[in-house]
């Protein structure tokens, strides 16, 4: 597994708050647009297709499990 799944963000609460604040007062459509852009920016930063595929699968697996 190339995808890091151990805690890797130094101040998790700060990150989480910024993420939620980012969506404040946005419509669902605007939030979807924002998320899409964020995913594309982060995906390009990561660049490694193996990591990206693992992340996509990990995200989906959780949804299917529910």
């Amino acid at each position: 597994m190339s995808l890091k799944t151990q805690a890797n963000i130094e101040r998790p609460d700060d990150f989480y708050q910024e993420l939620i604040d980012l969506h404040r007062d946005l419509s669902e459509e605007q939030s979807r647009e924002l998320n899409a852009k964020l995913i594309l920016l982060l995906a390009n930063h990561i660049g490694d297709m193996t990591v990206l595929s693992e992340a996509m699968n990990a995200a989906k697996k959780d949804i299917e499990a529910k």
Partner: peptide
């Protein structure tokens, strides 16, 4: 949404 995001970016 992804398509439009790509075009925006």
């Amino acid at each position: 949404a992804f398509r439009d995001a790509v075009l925006d970016l």
